[in-house]
Write a protein that binds this DNA or RNA. Structure first.
Lengths: 189, 189
DNA sequence: ACTCTTTCTTAAACTACCTTAAGTTTTTTG
DNA sequence: CAAAAAACTTAAGGTAGTTTAAGAAAGAGT
Protein backbone atom coordinates (compact mmCIF):
# COMPACT_ATOMS: atom_id res chain seq x y z
CA UNK A 1 0.00 0.00 0.00
CA UNK A 2 2.65 2.52 1.04
CA UNK A 3 5.55 0.59 -0.46
CA UNK A 4 6.09 3.00 -3.37
CA UNK A 5 6.34 6.08 -1.21
CA UNK A 6 8.59 4.37 1.33
CA UNK A 7 10.81 3.20 -1.51
CA UNK A 8 11.00 6.72 -2.85
CA UNK A 9 11.81 8.27 0.52
CA UNK A 10 14.49 5.63 1.09
CA UNK A 11 16.39 6.93 -1.92
CA UNK A 12 17.05 10.12 0.03
CA UNK A 13 17.03 9.26 3.74
CA UNK A 14 17.01 6.21 6.01
CA UNK A 15 14.03 5.57 8.24
CA UNK A 16 13.70 2.97 10.99
CA UNK A 17 10.79 0.55 10.83
CA UNK A 18 9.17 2.41 13.71
CA UNK A 19 9.48 5.69 11.82
CA UNK A 20 8.03 4.14 8.69
CA UNK A 21 5.03 2.97 10.67
CA UNK A 22 4.60 6.34 12.32
CA UNK A 23 4.85 8.04 8.96
CA UNK A 24 2.25 5.84 7.28
CA UNK A 25 -0.14 6.42 10.17
CA UNK A 26 -0.13 10.09 9.09
CA UNK A 27 -0.76 9.32 5.44
CA UNK A 28 -3.94 8.43 3.64
CA UNK A 29 -4.61 6.78 0.33
CA UNK A 30 -6.98 8.32 -2.16
CA UNK A 31 -8.41 6.76 -5.26
CA UNK A 32 -9.45 9.31 -7.88
CA UNK A 33 -11.33 8.48 -11.02
CA UNK A 34 -10.47 10.02 -14.37
CA UNK A 35 -11.72 13.63 -14.49
CA UNK A 36 -12.29 13.84 -10.74
CA UNK A 37 -10.77 16.80 -8.96
CA UNK A 38 -8.44 16.74 -5.98
CA UNK A 39 -8.65 20.54 -5.81
CA UNK A 40 -10.73 23.22 -7.50
CA UNK A 41 -10.11 26.90 -7.98
CA UNK A 42 -11.26 28.87 -4.96
CA UNK A 43 -10.80 25.98 -2.51
CA UNK A 44 -7.98 25.83 0.01
CA UNK A 45 -5.48 23.12 -0.91
CA UNK A 46 -5.58 20.80 2.09
CA UNK A 47 -3.19 18.10 0.93
CA UNK A 48 0.11 17.36 -0.70
CA UNK A 49 -0.12 14.39 -3.08
CA UNK A 50 2.36 11.68 -4.00
CA UNK A 51 1.28 9.83 -7.12
CA UNK A 52 1.48 6.04 -6.80
CA UNK A 53 -0.41 5.24 -9.96
CA UNK A 54 -2.04 7.28 -12.68
CA UNK A 55 -1.68 10.81 -13.84
CA UNK A 56 -2.65 14.14 -12.28
CA UNK A 57 -2.61 17.54 -13.91
CA UNK A 58 -2.46 21.01 -12.42
CA UNK A 59 -4.25 23.59 -14.53
CA UNK A 60 -6.10 26.86 -14.37
CA UNK A 61 -8.81 28.53 -16.36
CA UNK A 62 -7.82 31.83 -17.91
CA UNK A 63 -10.09 34.90 -17.97
CA UNK A 64 -10.93 33.93 -21.56
CA UNK A 65 -12.15 30.54 -20.35
CA UNK A 66 -9.25 28.53 -21.71
CA UNK A 67 -7.68 25.68 -19.71
CA UNK A 68 -3.94 26.12 -19.20
CA UNK A 69 -2.00 23.07 -18.02
CA UNK A 70 0.79 24.12 -15.67
CA UNK A 71 2.25 20.73 -14.87
CA UNK A 72 1.68 17.02 -14.74
CA UNK A 73 2.21 14.67 -11.81
CA UNK A 74 3.15 11.10 -12.70
CA UNK A 75 4.19 8.09 -10.63
CA UNK A 76 6.67 9.00 -7.88
CA UNK A 77 6.06 12.72 -8.13
CA UNK A 78 4.69 15.04 -5.49
CA UNK A 79 2.09 17.51 -6.64
CA UNK A 80 0.27 20.22 -4.73
CA UNK A 81 -0.59 23.90 -4.93
CA UNK A 82 2.02 25.12 -2.44
CA UNK A 83 0.80 28.71 -2.35
CA UNK A 84 -2.57 27.67 -1.05
CA UNK A 85 -1.27 24.68 0.93
CA UNK A 86 1.16 26.88 2.84
CA UNK A 87 -0.93 30.02 3.32
CA UNK A 88 -4.47 28.68 3.56
CA UNK A 89 -5.50 31.14 0.83
CA UNK A 90 -7.85 29.94 -1.93
CA UNK A 91 -6.13 28.21 -4.80
CA UNK A 92 -6.03 29.66 -8.28
CA UNK A 93 -5.38 26.23 -9.75
CA UNK A 94 -7.16 22.93 -10.23
CA UNK A 95 -5.75 19.46 -9.55
CA UNK A 96 -7.46 16.76 -11.57
CA UNK A 97 -6.92 13.10 -12.45
CA UNK A 98 -6.33 12.49 -16.16
CA UNK A 99 -6.31 8.72 -15.59
CA UNK A 100 -7.81 6.77 -12.71
CA UNK A 101 -5.20 7.37 -10.08
CA UNK A 102 -4.00 6.31 -6.65
CA UNK A 103 -2.30 8.97 -4.56
CA UNK A 104 -0.89 9.26 -1.06
CA UNK A 105 -2.03 12.40 0.75
CA UNK A 106 -0.48 14.38 3.57
CA UNK A 107 -2.83 16.82 5.22
CA UNK A 108 -1.58 20.37 5.76
CA UNK A 109 -2.77 20.35 9.37
CA UNK A 110 -0.67 17.39 10.41
CA UNK A 111 2.39 18.04 8.28
CA UNK A 112 4.21 20.16 10.86
CA UNK A 113 3.51 17.61 13.58
CA UNK A 114 4.83 14.86 11.33
CA UNK A 115 8.00 16.83 10.65
CA UNK A 116 8.50 17.29 14.38
CA UNK A 117 8.26 13.58 15.00
CA UNK A 118 10.42 12.60 12.03
CA UNK A 119 12.75 15.54 11.39
CA UNK A 120 14.52 13.55 8.67
CA UNK A 121 11.52 14.15 6.44
CA UNK A 122 12.56 17.78 6.20
CA UNK A 123 15.68 16.63 4.41
CA UNK A 124 13.66 14.42 2.09
CA UNK A 125 11.30 17.21 1.06
CA UNK A 126 14.10 19.71 0.79
CA UNK A 127 15.80 17.50 -1.77
CA UNK A 128 12.58 16.75 -3.65
CA UNK A 129 11.95 20.48 -3.87
CA UNK A 130 15.48 21.24 -5.01
CA UNK A 131 14.90 18.92 -7.95
CA UNK A 132 11.44 20.24 -8.70
CA UNK A 133 12.62 23.86 -8.57
CA UNK A 134 15.59 23.17 -10.77
CA UNK A 135 13.37 21.31 -13.24
CA UNK A 136 11.13 24.36 -13.55
CA UNK A 137 14.08 26.60 -14.35
CA UNK A 138 15.20 24.20 -17.05
CA UNK A 139 11.68 24.19 -18.39
CA UNK A 140 11.61 27.99 -18.56
CA UNK A 141 14.85 27.82 -20.50
CA UNK A 142 13.21 25.47 -23.02
CA UNK A 143 10.08 27.57 -23.29
CA UNK A 144 12.15 30.58 -24.25
CA UNK A 145 14.73 28.97 -26.47
CA UNK A 146 12.98 26.17 -28.29
CA UNK A 147 10.16 26.57 -30.76
CA UNK A 148 6.91 24.73 -30.11
CA UNK A 149 8.01 22.10 -32.58
CA UNK A 150 11.40 21.58 -30.96
CA UNK A 151 9.80 21.24 -27.54
CA UNK A 152 7.39 18.67 -28.85
CA UNK A 153 10.13 16.64 -30.54
CA UNK A 154 12.25 16.77 -27.38
CA UNK A 155 9.32 15.62 -25.28
CA UNK A 156 8.65 12.80 -27.70
CA UNK A 157 12.27 11.74 -27.59
CA UNK A 158 12.74 11.95 -23.81
CA UNK A 159 9.34 10.74 -22.65
CA UNK A 160 7.72 8.78 -25.50
CA UNK A 161 5.53 6.71 -23.16
CA UNK A 162 4.30 9.82 -21.38
CA UNK A 163 3.29 11.52 -24.62
CA UNK A 164 1.11 8.50 -25.39
CA UNK A 165 -0.66 8.71 -22.04
CA UNK A 166 -1.70 12.34 -22.22
CA UNK A 167 -4.50 13.72 -24.42
CA UNK A 168 -2.93 15.74 -27.18
CA UNK A 169 -4.72 18.96 -26.35
CA UNK A 170 -3.36 18.85 -22.79
CA UNK A 171 0.16 18.29 -24.03
CA UNK A 172 -0.28 21.24 -26.40
CA UNK A 173 -1.42 23.42 -23.50
CA UNK A 174 1.52 22.27 -21.36
CA UNK A 175 3.89 23.20 -24.19
CA UNK A 176 2.19 26.57 -24.64
CA UNK A 177 0.81 25.96 -28.13
CA UNK A 178 -2.70 25.37 -29.49
CA UNK A 179 -3.97 21.84 -30.12
CA UNK A 180 -4.46 22.79 -33.77
CA UNK A 181 -0.83 23.70 -34.14
CA UNK A 182 0.35 20.51 -32.43
CA UNK A 183 -1.86 18.49 -34.72
CA UNK A 184 -0.23 20.19 -37.67
CA UNK A 185 3.25 19.43 -36.33
CA UNK A 186 2.39 15.76 -35.99
CA UNK A 187 0.96 15.64 -39.51
CA UNK A 188 4.12 16.94 -41.10
CA UNK A 189 6.28 13.98 -40.00
CA UNK B 1 27.98 41.17 8.59
CA UNK B 2 25.65 38.16 8.79
CA UNK B 3 22.74 40.07 10.28
CA UNK B 4 20.62 40.00 7.10
CA UNK B 5 20.82 36.27 6.65
CA UNK B 6 20.18 35.57 10.35
CA UNK B 7 17.19 37.89 10.21
CA UNK B 8 15.88 36.05 7.19
CA UNK B 9 16.34 32.61 8.71
CA UNK B 10 14.63 33.80 11.89
CA UNK B 11 11.44 34.41 9.94
CA UNK B 12 11.17 30.65 9.46
CA UNK B 13 12.91 28.95 12.39
CA UNK B 14 14.38 29.83 15.79
CA UNK B 15 18.10 29.39 16.36
CA UNK B 16 19.99 29.65 19.64
CA UNK B 17 22.91 32.07 19.82
CA UNK B 18 25.29 29.11 19.81
CA UNK B 19 23.68 27.78 16.64
CA UNK B 20 23.87 31.18 14.99
CA UNK B 21 27.58 31.30 15.73
CA UNK B 22 28.12 27.78 14.48
CA UNK B 23 26.19 28.59 11.33
CA UNK B 24 28.13 31.74 10.54
CA UNK B 25 31.40 29.87 11.02
CA UNK B 26 30.35 27.79 8.00
CA UNK B 27 29.46 30.80 5.87
CA UNK B 28 31.65 33.13 3.92
CA UNK B 29 31.10 36.60 2.54
CA UNK B 30 31.89 37.41 -1.06
CA UNK B 31 32.08 40.79 -2.68
CA UNK B 32 31.46 40.70 -6.42
CA UNK B 33 31.93 43.63 -8.73
CA UNK B 34 29.47 44.41 -11.50
CA UNK B 35 29.93 41.95 -14.40
CA UNK B 36 32.03 39.54 -12.35
CA UNK B 37 30.97 35.91 -12.42
CA UNK B 38 30.18 33.68 -9.47
CA UNK B 39 29.83 30.75 -11.85
CA UNK B 40 30.52 30.14 -15.52
CA UNK B 41 29.17 27.54 -17.89
CA UNK B 42 31.18 24.33 -17.69
CA UNK B 43 32.27 24.89 -14.08
CA UNK B 44 30.86 22.94 -11.16
CA UNK B 45 28.69 25.16 -8.98
CA UNK B 46 30.44 25.03 -5.61
CA UNK B 47 28.26 27.41 -3.65
CA UNK B 48 24.76 28.45 -2.82
CA UNK B 49 24.41 32.24 -2.57
CA UNK B 50 22.26 34.45 -0.41
CA UNK B 51 22.17 38.02 -1.69
CA UNK B 52 22.75 40.64 1.00
CA UNK B 53 23.17 43.56 -1.33
CA UNK B 54 23.14 44.02 -5.07
CA UNK B 55 21.75 42.03 -7.92
CA UNK B 56 22.74 38.67 -9.42
CA UNK B 57 21.46 37.12 -12.61
CA UNK B 58 21.41 33.53 -13.77
CA UNK B 59 21.68 33.22 -17.54
CA UNK B 60 22.87 30.96 -20.29
CA UNK B 61 24.18 31.40 -23.79
CA UNK B 62 22.10 29.71 -26.46
CA UNK B 63 23.61 27.80 -29.39
CA UNK B 64 22.99 30.93 -31.48
CA UNK B 65 25.13 32.95 -29.06
CA UNK B 66 22.29 34.85 -27.43
CA UNK B 67 22.19 35.47 -23.67
CA UNK B 68 19.02 34.19 -22.03
CA UNK B 69 18.27 35.43 -18.51
CA UNK B 70 16.63 32.67 -16.48
CA UNK B 71 16.22 34.51 -13.19
CA UNK B 72 17.38 37.34 -10.99
CA UNK B 73 18.53 37.18 -7.38
CA UNK B 74 17.91 40.28 -5.30
CA UNK B 75 18.35 41.07 -1.62
CA UNK B 76 17.18 38.22 0.63
CA UNK B 77 17.01 35.67 -2.15
CA UNK B 78 18.99 32.47 -2.49
CA UNK B 79 20.39 31.76 -5.90
CA UNK B 80 22.40 28.83 -7.17
CA UNK B 81 22.50 26.29 -9.99
CA UNK B 82 21.03 23.37 -8.05
CA UNK B 83 21.59 20.80 -10.79
CA UNK B 84 25.31 21.32 -10.71
CA UNK B 85 25.48 22.12 -7.00
CA UNK B 86 23.79 18.83 -6.13
CA UNK B 87 25.34 16.51 -8.69
CA UNK B 88 28.81 17.95 -9.20
CA UNK B 89 28.16 18.00 -12.94
CA UNK B 90 29.27 21.04 -14.97
CA UNK B 91 26.78 23.88 -14.98
CA UNK B 92 24.97 24.97 -18.11
CA UNK B 93 24.32 28.38 -16.60
CA UNK B 94 26.23 31.48 -15.57
CA UNK B 95 25.83 33.44 -12.34
CA UNK B 96 26.91 37.04 -12.65
CA UNK B 97 26.63 40.27 -10.69
CA UNK B 98 24.63 42.99 -12.44
CA UNK B 99 25.46 45.48 -9.69
CA UNK B 100 28.33 45.40 -7.23
CA UNK B 101 27.04 42.83 -4.80
CA UNK B 102 27.63 41.26 -1.41
CA UNK B 103 26.60 37.65 -1.01
CA UNK B 104 26.79 34.98 1.66
CA UNK B 105 28.07 31.66 0.35
CA UNK B 106 27.58 28.10 1.58
CA UNK B 107 29.98 25.59 0.07
CA UNK B 108 28.53 22.36 -1.27
CA UNK B 109 31.13 20.29 0.54
CA UNK B 110 30.17 21.51 3.99
CA UNK B 111 26.45 21.86 3.52
CA UNK B 112 25.58 18.32 4.59
CA UNK B 113 27.78 18.64 7.67
CA UNK B 114 26.10 21.92 8.52
CA UNK B 115 22.67 20.35 8.18
CA UNK B 116 23.75 17.53 10.51
CA UNK B 117 24.82 19.99 13.16
CA UNK B 118 21.79 22.26 12.77
CA UNK B 119 18.95 20.07 11.51
CA UNK B 120 16.56 22.99 11.77
CA UNK B 121 18.17 24.45 8.68
CA UNK B 122 16.55 21.69 6.65
CA UNK B 123 13.20 23.19 7.57
CA UNK B 124 14.37 26.66 6.61
CA UNK B 125 15.56 25.61 3.18
CA UNK B 126 12.54 23.42 2.61
CA UNK B 127 10.32 26.43 3.08
CA UNK B 128 12.49 28.71 0.98
CA UNK B 129 12.34 26.14 -1.80
CA UNK B 130 8.60 25.71 -1.52
CA UNK B 131 8.25 29.42 -2.21
CA UNK B 132 10.77 29.47 -5.00
CA UNK B 133 9.20 26.46 -6.70
CA UNK B 134 5.73 27.89 -6.42
CA UNK B 135 6.94 31.22 -7.79
CA UNK B 136 8.31 29.48 -10.89
CA UNK B 137 4.97 27.79 -11.55
CA UNK B 138 3.22 31.15 -11.30
CA UNK B 139 5.78 32.58 -13.66
CA UNK B 140 5.15 29.81 -16.20
CA UNK B 141 1.48 30.65 -15.98
CA UNK B 142 2.24 34.29 -16.82
CA UNK B 143 4.58 33.37 -19.65
CA UNK B 144 1.84 31.35 -21.31
CA UNK B 145 -1.14 33.55 -20.64
CA UNK B 146 0.10 37.11 -20.81
CA UNK B 147 1.50 38.83 -23.87
CA UNK B 148 4.97 40.34 -23.65
CA UNK B 149 3.35 43.72 -23.15
CA UNK B 150 1.09 42.51 -20.34
CA UNK B 151 4.02 40.88 -18.55
CA UNK B 152 6.03 44.06 -18.79
CA UNK B 153 3.18 46.21 -17.45
CA UNK B 154 2.61 43.77 -14.59
CA UNK B 155 6.29 43.79 -13.72
CA UNK B 156 6.31 47.59 -13.80
CA UNK B 157 3.29 47.71 -11.53
CA UNK B 158 4.44 45.08 -9.03
CA UNK B 159 8.17 45.83 -8.92
CA UNK B 160 8.72 49.38 -10.21
CA UNK B 161 12.00 49.83 -8.30
CA UNK B 162 13.37 46.56 -9.63
CA UNK B 163 12.60 47.49 -13.24
CA UNK B 164 14.69 50.62 -12.74
CA UNK B 165 17.67 48.63 -11.47
CA UNK B 166 17.95 46.18 -14.33
CA UNK B 167 19.29 46.97 -17.80
CA UNK B 168 16.40 46.93 -20.23
CA UNK B 169 17.84 44.24 -22.46
CA UNK B 170 18.16 41.87 -19.51
CA UNK B 171 14.59 42.50 -18.47
CA UNK B 172 13.50 41.83 -22.07
CA UNK B 173 15.40 38.55 -22.03
CA UNK B 174 13.87 37.57 -18.68
CA UNK B 175 10.41 38.27 -20.11
CA UNK B 176 11.19 36.28 -23.24
CA UNK B 177 11.05 39.17 -25.69
CA UNK B 178 13.68 41.03 -27.69
CA UNK B 179 15.13 44.32 -26.42
CA UNK B 180 13.85 45.98 -29.61
CA UNK B 181 10.32 44.90 -28.87
CA UNK B 182 10.50 46.06 -25.25
CA UNK B 183 11.83 49.40 -26.42
CA UNK B 184 8.83 49.69 -28.72
CA UNK B 185 6.43 48.84 -25.89
CA UNK B 186 7.91 51.56 -23.72
CA UNK B 187 7.71 54.10 -26.54
CA UNK B 188 4.01 53.56 -27.09
CA UNK B 189 2.94 54.78 -23.63
C1' DA C 1 -24.43 -1.78 -32.12
C1' DC C 2 -25.98 2.99 -31.56
C1' DT C 3 -25.69 7.72 -29.71
C1' DC C 4 -23.38 11.30 -27.38
C1' DT C 5 -19.31 13.28 -26.05
C1' DT C 6 -14.62 14.00 -26.35
C1' DT C 7 -10.59 14.45 -28.99
C1' DC C 8 -8.15 15.29 -33.21
C1' DT C 9 -7.53 17.29 -37.96
C1' DT C 10 -7.39 20.63 -41.88
C1' DA C 11 -6.96 25.05 -43.84
C1' DA C 12 -7.20 30.10 -44.61
C1' DA C 13 -6.90 34.61 -42.68
C1' DC C 14 -4.57 37.03 -39.17
C1' DT C 15 -1.19 38.91 -35.40
C1' DA C 16 2.31 39.28 -31.90
C1' DC C 17 6.71 39.27 -31.99
C1' DC C 18 11.35 38.58 -34.43
C1' DT C 19 15.21 39.83 -37.51
C1' DT C 20 18.13 42.88 -39.52
C1' DA C 21 20.28 47.04 -39.83
C1' DA C 22 21.41 51.55 -38.80
C1' DG C 23 21.54 55.35 -35.87
C1' DT C 24 21.39 57.62 -31.16
C1' DT C 25 22.10 58.03 -26.39
C1' DT C 26 24.20 56.82 -22.12
C1' DT C 27 27.83 54.92 -19.34
C1' DT C 28 32.43 53.54 -18.46
C1' DT C 29 37.22 54.03 -18.52
C1' DG C 30 41.95 55.70 -19.35
C1' DC D 1 36.94 65.03 -20.52
C1' DA D 2 37.61 62.50 -24.71
C1' DA D 3 37.13 57.99 -26.71
C1' DA D 4 35.34 53.62 -26.54
C1' DA D 5 32.03 50.52 -25.11
C1' DA D 6 27.50 49.44 -23.65
C1' DA D 7 22.68 50.22 -23.88
C1' DC D 8 18.65 51.92 -26.16
C1' DT D 9 15.70 53.33 -30.25
C1' DT D 10 13.37 53.21 -34.81
C1' DA D 11 11.50 50.99 -38.69
C1' DA D 12 10.67 47.66 -42.55
C1' DG D 13 10.12 43.00 -43.84
C1' DG D 14 9.43 38.27 -42.20
C1' DT D 15 7.61 34.09 -39.55
C1' DA D 16 5.98 31.02 -35.88
C1' DG D 17 2.03 30.40 -34.06
C1' DT D 18 -3.17 31.87 -33.31
C1' DT D 19 -8.00 32.18 -34.47
C1' DT D 20 -12.02 30.60 -36.44
C1' DA D 21 -14.76 27.25 -38.31
C1' DA D 22 -15.97 22.94 -39.91
C1' DG D 23 -15.61 18.17 -40.20
C1' DA D 24 -13.65 13.47 -38.99
C1' DA D 25 -12.35 10.01 -35.80
C1' DA D 26 -12.15 7.81 -31.54
C1' DG D 27 -14.12 6.65 -26.74
C1' DA D 28 -17.58 5.87 -23.41
C1' DG D 29 -22.13 4.80 -21.77
C1' DT D 30 -26.57 2.46 -22.58
Amino acid sequence: MFTEIIAHISKFITLTTAEEELLTSYLSIKEVKKKEHLLREGEVCQENYFVIKGLIRMYLITPKGVEQVIQFGIENWWITEYNSYKSGQPSGFYLQAIENATVVAINRNVQEELFEKIPQLEKYFRQVLERAYSAQLTRIHYIFNLTGEEQYRLMLQKYPAFVQRVPQYMLASFLGITPEFLSMLRAKK
